[in-house]
């Protein structure tokens, strides 16, 4: 702050608190709704303080799911989401580390072509090639499988560029020293390059985990078997039943469960998260 202005400082705090209330209000209402019985929730206005049904509601959705939406347990969907998010994050990081290593530390014909091919993926999000990509997955027999959920999403231009930028700043002396000690390229990669990249890897993992967890269109298309639903997709199916049957208290419990893992990751790893976000957009 440049100068003291108590009035202005007060106004600043008021605006910030107002902003936080607006940001948090939908989540608070969701939480409250998830702790009441259905009767309490659907009687307008619903209560504004948490009720006593927290354990019952969460146990019910985790174990039995929602009757109106087919009754697949939400616990299973959480596992699916976790597998999908972790596999996408780890897969993107692994193949991007490898390709950035190839592009930075080797000279070979078609290097520029490979670089541009990877760059191309930035311009082709799933949303613009929905039908033909679906057809590829169907032809490969990957519908309703973890491979179908993850493999098509693990190409990553942003991660490759991020690692390329980082590798370019790694001193050449490290490579020369490794070569004098007799290390080959793979040894150099595993023993030196990956360990020095660990903060970039951590930052990227946070961003990519959230990206994977929040995927919607892709799992919506390729999962028809309830046992393969991710939790984010399942919520939509829970509210799109006939209006009279929406079990709002359980839908809201499911929504809380769907938000919890990525939000915890962001708050716990906030430093890496902000870093990853700012760096991937450079």
């Amino acid at each position: 702050m440049v100068e003291r202005q108590p009035g202005l400082t007060l106004l600043t705090h008021v605006i910030l608190v107002f902003g936080i209330v607006v940001v948090a209000f939908p989540i608070y209402v969701t939480f409250v709704a998830s702790t009441h019985t259905l009767d309490d929730v659907v009687r307008a206005p619903m209560p504004l303080l948490p009720g006593h049904r927290l354990l019952e509601n969460y146990q019910a959705v985790l174990g039995h799911g929602l009757r109106s939406a087919g009754g697949a347990p939400v616990g299973r969907m959480l596992v699916n989401s976790l597998v999908m998010a972790a596999a996408i994050a780890a897969g993107k990081i692994a193949i991007s580390l490898l390709s950035a290593f190839a592009i930075v530390y080797f000279r070979f014909p078609c290097r520029a072509a490979a670089f541009w091919l990877i760059f191309l993926t930035l311009m082709l999000p799933v949303e613009v090639r929905i039908v033909p990509t679906y057809k590829v997955i169907a032809d490969l027999g990957l519908l309703n499988s973890y491979a179908g959920l993850t493999v098509p999403l693990i190409a990553s231009a942003t991660a490759t560029f991020l690692f390329r930028q980082f590798f370019l700043t790694v001193p050449d002396e490290l490579l020369e020293a490794a070569r004098i000690d007799g290390a080959g390229p793979l040894r150099f990669f595993t023993a030196i390059l990956v360990p020095v990249s660990r903060t970039s890897i951590a930052a990227l993992f946070v961003i990519l985990f959230i990206y994977g967890w929040n995927q919607y269109l892709w799992p919506l298309l390729i999962t028809t078997d309830e046992a393969m639903y991710t939790i984010v997709v399942a919520i939509h199916r829970m509210v799109s039943v006939a209006e009279a049957q929406v079990e709002w208290h359980r839908v809201m419990a499911t929504a809380m469960l769907a938000m919890l893992p990525p939000v915890v990751v962001v708050i716990v790893m906030q430093r890496w998260f902000v870093r990853g976000l700012v760096e991937t957009e450079k």
Binding site: V23, P26, N214, V232, A258, P262, Q270
Partner: peptide, 28 residues
């Protein structure tokens, strides 16, 4: 910290939260 975390909420989930708030019969 309190302003950063909605980034982690999936668009579809965010949609359902707002849908609940504005539900014509039961929304707050």
């Amino acid at each position: 910290t309190l302003l950063v975390w909605p980034y982690a909420v999936a668009p579809a989930v965010a949609g359902v939260l707002w849908l609940f708030l504005f539900n014509p019969t039961i929304g707050l």
